[in-house]
């Protein structure tokens, strides 16, 4: 994931559905097109939810990883 540089980081650890999606959307709205947001979540449902959110909104997930119950997503604003 080292080739992706995030300009912002959003930590949604401990939050449950639908908060990670809502917070991500809020953050993305404040960013410029092309910028990348790093979002960390501990909600196991967020892995599929983030994909669906991305498919719907067009903001692309350019990278993701899972480590010890933490899910990290790199989302590029469309």
């Amino acid at each position: 994931m080292s080739e992706v540089t995030a300009s912002r980081t959003l930590d949604c650890s401990g939050m449950n559905c639908p908060l990670p999606i809502l917070k991500t959307k809020k953050e993305i709205d404040q960013m410029q097109s092309g910028e990348v947001l790093k979002m960390i979540s501990t909600d196991p449902g967020s892995a599929n939810d983030m994909t669906s959110w991305s498919n719907r909104t067009g903001n692309k997930i350019v990278g993701s990883s899972t480590e010890g119950g933490a899910y990290t997503f790199y989302i590029q604003k469309s």
Binding site: P18, L22, T24, K25, R56, T57
Partner: peptide
């Protein structure tokens, strides 16, 4: 709220 976050 999720729908709004998905641009609906």
């Amino acid at each position: 709220s999720a729908a709004a976050a998905m641009d609906m």
